[in-house]
Structures are given as C-alpha cells and as structure tokens.
Design a protein around this nucleic acid. Sequence first.
DNA 1: CACTGTGAACTTATTCACAGCT
DNA 2: AGCTGTGAATAAGTTCACAGTG
Lengths: 224, 224
Amino acid sequence: MSEIEIPDIVIRRLPLYARELGLLAGEGRDFISSQELGHRLGVTPAQIRKDLSYFGRFGKRGRGYEVLGLRERLRSILGLNGRVKEMVLVGVGQLGRAVLGYGGFRLGGFEVVRVFDSDPNQIGRKVDNHQVDDVATLPEYLQKTRVSMGIVAVPAEAAPSVIDTLVDGGVRAILSYAPVTMSVPHGVRLRQIDPVMELESMAYYLEEPFDGYIEDHQADVTTN
Amino acid sequence: MSEIEIPDIVIRRLPLYARELGLLAGEGRDFISSQELGHRLGVTPAQIRKDLSYFGRFGKRGRGYEVLGLRERLRSILGLNGRVKEMVLVGVGQLGRAVLGYGGFRLGGFEVVRVFDSDPNQIGRKVDNHQVDDVATLPEYLQKTRVSMGIVAVPAEAAPSVIDTLVDGGVRAILSYAPVTMSVPHGVRLRQIDPVMELESMAYYLEEPFDGYIEDHQADVTTN
DNA sequence: CACTGTGAACTTATTCACAGCT
DNA sequence: AGCTGTGAATAAGTTCACAGTG
C-alpha cells in the first residue's frame, strides 16, 4: 500500500470521481456505494474500490463512502485543497478568450493570473480583466513568479517555442490546445486537447466503408 | 488479420499518425520508417507496426512507409476520404464561437453545417456566417438531414437534454465540451473534452504534499 | 541489408470473488 | 446484511525478437 507507483490512469480517474461526488453532495446525498457511483459514471464498482485502495481506506463497510468526505480526500490527494492554482495563459485569440471566459477553471480552483500573446494588436489590450503582455516577457515573468501551470492556446506553428519557454521557466504542467506533438523533459506533464483528433477517431465508427471493405465496427459508450 | 475486433485505443492513434505524416509530406519526405515516425511521436516503432498490421501491410521492407500513401490509407480507414463530414453545433456562447472560428475542423474535413442555441438573444443572429436556430427545431432538422456528428458546447445543465436530442435524432458521434457524465446507447460514441479534469489530474504531479505526506511522484511525458 | 510484419513474452489494467468489518 | 478492501485470476495492451522480404 505504500511504496508502489500509482498508475497515471488511476490518477486521471480521480477528478471524475471527485466531480460526481460534488454533484451528489449537491443532491443532498451523504453516503454512496461504489456500486451506485460506478453506475452513475459508467465504471465498475471494483474499479472504483481498487483505485481508491491505492490511497487508503475511505469507505465504511456496509455503508459506502461519505460523499463530501471522499470528495475532500480526493481533492487533497490531487493537491487541490491548498490555495488556488495559478496558471499563465499564452494566446488570446478566440480560443484563449474562451478559456479566459470559462468559469469552470475558477470553480475547480484554477486561476489564470497572467496572459501573454505575440500579436502587437493584442499586447497591451485588456481582455476579460487581464492586461495582455508580450510573450517575449514570459521568461522573466516565470523567473520572478514560479507559476507551475500553463495553458497554451496559440497556433500550431507557435506552440513548440511557447512550450519550450514554459518548460524553461519552470512550468511543470502544461495544457495545450495546439495540435502538435512535442516531447518535454522528465518531470513535466504536457497534455493536449485536440478536438479534431477526437472527431477523426470517432469517424471510424460511422459505418462508412473503407475502400472496398464493408465492415461492421460497433463499440460501446466512451466517455473519454 | 481479418475478423478480430480492432481495439479502440488503436483507432485513436491513427489520427496521430495521419497528422504527423501530413507534416512529413509538407517537409518533402517520401518514405519514413516506423523507427523515425515513432521517435517523432513518442511512440515505439513496434507499436506503430503492430497498429498498422490490424489493417494491412502498408510498408516496404527495407524502406519504410510511403508518407503520402500511408496517410491516405489511414484517412481512408477512418472514413475521412469521402466528402466533408457534416456536423451540427449546439451552443454559441464563447466556446461555441471558438469552435466555429477554428479552422482546424475545416482542414480536417469537418464542417459545421448548422448551429443551434436556446438563448432568445442568440436565435436568429448570425454568428460566423451561420444563422443561429432555436434548439427546439433541432429534432426536425436532424430528421430531415441525417447529420451524423455533433458538437455540444452548452453549459453542463443543458448538456444531457441536448445530447439526448442528438442521439434521438440519429447523431452517432458526439463531441461534448460539457463536464457531465452520460451514458448513450450502444452504437453511439460520446467523447468529452474537459480541460478542468486534465488540469486536476496534472496537479497531482506538482509536488504539493497531500495532507501530511510528502511523496515523490514523477512520471513521464504524456501527450494525451 | 534495413526494414516490416507478427507470434510470443511480457507488462499493465481490469474484474472477480471472498474474507473481514460495522 | 451490506458493504469495502484486496489478493488472485483474467483480459488487454505493449514490447520483444526474429523470420521474411524487397
């Protein structure tokens, strides 16, 4: 229970559990079983119990899990119970603006604290209460402030250099919307959101035959 | 090689391969080995060869893969070589607008053909060359046109009903930006993009201790 | 000769099944 | 009685290693 490496795939499910527990709390639920939670999430009860067992024993036998208590434990495990996580945002095009305007980050305990762009037309402007700074000043900003998370919302061509700058500046977790593959040093997490790739892979299941074949691919619900 | 079920995880990597092959073609490369392609993508060469072997034999021994040829095969396998894939978009808030404005869909062979919202202030307005229709008219529109893909960019509360409407209307592949878990019938693919969950799971690796513990989680590059 | 294509070996992830609490 | 927590069993996914081939 103590010195095994916890699989990333397990870590990635924790936010899902935490989110659903938040909803349950909102519905006034005090306790929930792995059975019912799994049913709501499309996950097996055994999966949930096994995942949680990596971190400790949070349930009460015969009763299930205390909804708010477990949610707090999960957020604590994820490191989300301290102060708000500060992020820099690079790129204030349409997508960057949507990121800034999206309330979900704030609610989740994340906050964009500084915004950068390379477009002279944007630099100096105010977008959603944030002064847009020249991306050229990003390195010095990172040096001063040690922000550990970043969001990249720049065009593909610009992304590699932006990501390098973030990494060099000590940013350890990067969420990129740019469709480019890059490798980053050990210890840095880079995750990409690429809606086009999602659509492309889903297209496979739309029974269009490929070339001459007519095959029947059918598969199950995937909630990512 | 012929009647085995192809794992979804393999399908999901095909767009990644196709994308990189497109870049290679742009660089003027004619052939590439699984070795080099894997290196560029952070994937093992064996993985690439194994993935491709589900669909046929596309390589030339001693030479590697013909860049443009393989790209076309992959796009064909995914069903992306026919005409443009038409999609409906539900929700034209900030996020929906970003989706509409994003050129990547167009380039990938996807096109938003109709836009819906429930907000009376939006309905009837023109957004990025699209007339915004009342979401109440979505069912009849789907009945008429049999669009098979949809993008959901509405708030979480509205998402379940929108998704149900899409499913009932015959939409078989749905990309949702709303942070809600839903189950859909067999044969329908629902994929969610949830940046907050990505950030939350990455936060785990930012060496914030959880409660009293100080542990050392370090893991490798993850490009989704 | 440098590569692919692929069974076999291995590793990782999921599910089972049941002992043990409450 | 009804649940959790968890080793053991199974399934899924990845990598190895090498025969085969242009």
